[in-house]
Every structure is written in C-alpha cells, then in structure tokens.
Amino acid sequence: MAYFMVVLLDDNRFAKIKGTELEEKVQYMFGGELRCLNVEVSEEMKDKILQEFDTARIDSRGAITDVPVAFLRELFNQVAEKKSLGSEVIEAVLAKSSEIKELAAKESEYLPAPEI
C-alpha cells in the first residue's frame, strides 16, 4: 500500500505556495470544497511515525492521520520551505519529533474551539 499525508490548504496556506511548482499539484476534493496537497510517505517513514506518535492511524485510503496538530503544522512548514511533496519532507518533520511532542503535550490538554 502507498502511504501519504494530507496537507489541507486554507486561503492563508494557499497564498504561501501560490506561484510555486506546488500550485500545480494542489488537489481539489469533494466537488472543489476542499484544497489539499498529498505528501508521500515511505514504508519506513510510516513505521517511524506510528512509533513516535501513538495516536497516529492509517485510514482506509492509506493516509496517515490522527497525528498531533503540531505535526500537521510542521508538515506544512516543511512543504512550503522545501517546495516538495517528497519523502525528504517527512524526514525533516520527524527530525523535529521532540519539539513536536512538547507542543503536542500542551495541545493534548487544550485546543481552542471555533466560534460557530
């Protein structure tokens, strides 16, 4: 199975990759209601993610989900910095595992609810 991680793009994030090669790789999902990028994840990296982050799961599409929000934010930062969706992006995120875990420890206590 091929594994991947989804990076959601709101307007703010989209602005940061606009005009780069990544713009062509943006996918529109659910009738154009959602914009996203898919980052590829190797078997080895998938195992590392599952080992490092115990909430992580693999869903029916082969997507790795349920990682801390801090992980997802760093994932976008690396995508935007490296202008890539390749395996080096995940490697760079995992290199910051300790930092992410520190942030995740705080976010496991509190996440601000949206006002709706």
């Binding site: 959601l8 209601e33 599409r61 989900t65 929000v69 601000p112």
Partner: peptide, 23 residues
C-alpha cells in the same frame, strides 16, 4: 471517487477547519 475517512475528518476538525457539508 474520493474516499471519506473518519480519521481524515478528525484531522480537519483538529486543525480548526469546518468540514464541507458534503462530507
């Protein structure tokens, strides 16, 4: 088709993105 996944939705919720009504 585009698969729906509860886990994917959880990620969206956690990031503070309201899922589209179609999902």
């Amino acid at each position: 088709r585009e698969k729906l996944s509860g886990s994917f939705l959880r990620g969206m919720v956690a990031e503070g993105v309201q899922p589209p009504a179609i999902i």
